[in-house]
């Protein structure tokens, strides 16, 4: 059923991505592909993977931006994936009922058995979260690793999405954003976590934490500061003085 749940889910599972920490290593995107190419939504088809124009379905993409205020520029790595919005138009536009938002935890999913591959949901998503699998003829999207987070054969600490489990810098956090006391909600409150494109009014669940302010180089030693010069002593010092006084 593509109508949204009548009552908004009390649990709102999602991600908090720290743009101050992300180093742009793409490990989250690669582990996402790895897990989901063999998981519940497999396969994630690749077209011409070893050719000159490789194409394929990925749920997670890492962009890199240069942000400049006119004085100093900075590089910000920016992972982009489904935000599991509270108002997901991708769900309501679906004509078949393949797209749905779970009432128990707010996760947005596709039932591939019902999908006709009309692509309208991808048109309705401002964030590019849905991709068409040419081979399967259906749409695919991030499942928030629903086959990991509820997987009781996993140790409790491993019941997190693949992108979160693999991040070597701990820039990604998973939790319940509907619970104001949860670790992720506190992180959002402390760091000023924000929504992407709030003017679209999709009310994303996932939040991004902004890069911390630059300190204009006052926070430590500048990389280009010259090393303190030490006048050589002894024989080398005598040679140095001799050669320097030449002119």
């Amino acid at each position: 059923m593509t109508s949204l749940p009548a009552t908004s889910p009390s649990r709102r599972l999602g991600l908090v991505i720290d743009l101050d920490i992300c180093v742009g290593c793409h490990a989250c995107a690669v582990n996402c592909k790895e897990w989901n190419a063999g998981g519940a939504v497999a396969p994630l088809t690749d077209i011409d993977p070893y050719g000159s124009e490789p194409d394929g379905v990925w749920f997670n993409r890492v962009h890199t931006y240069e942000v400049s205020d006119g004085t100093a520029g900075r590089t910000v790595h920016f992972p982009r994936s489904c935000l599991h919005c509270a108002q997901p138009a991708c769900v309501t536009v679906c004509p078949t009922g393949a797209s749905y938002k779970r009432s128990e935890d707010g996760i947005v999913l596709i039932n591939e058995e019902l999908c006709i591959g009309c692509k309208l949901c991808s048109w309705a998503c401002p964030y590019g979260a849905r991709e068409f699998d040419r081979d399967a003829g259906v749409m695919k999207k991030c499942t928030l690793c629903i086959d990991r987070i509820y997987n009781e054969t996993f140790a409790p600490e491993d019941r997190v999405p693949a992108c979160v489990a693999t991040c070597p810098a701990s820039a990604r956090h998973f939790g319940d954003l509907g619970d104001p006391g949860s670790a992720v909600s506190r992180l959002v409150a402390d760091r000023g976590g924000y929504d992407l494109m709030p003017e679209m009014e999709y009310a994303p669940t996932n939040k991004y934490l902004p890069p911390r302010p630059c300190k204009d180089g006052k926070d430590g030693v500048s990389a280009l500061e010259p090393a303190p010069s030490q006048a050589p002593k002894g024989l080398l010092g005598w040679l140095d003085r001799l050669l320097s006084s030449e002119s």
Partner: peptide, 10 residues
């Protein structure tokens, strides 16, 4: 933070 420019595509 300032003007945003794509530096590297995914």
């Amino acid at each position: 933070l300032g003007t945003v420019r794509l530096f590297e595509a995914p």
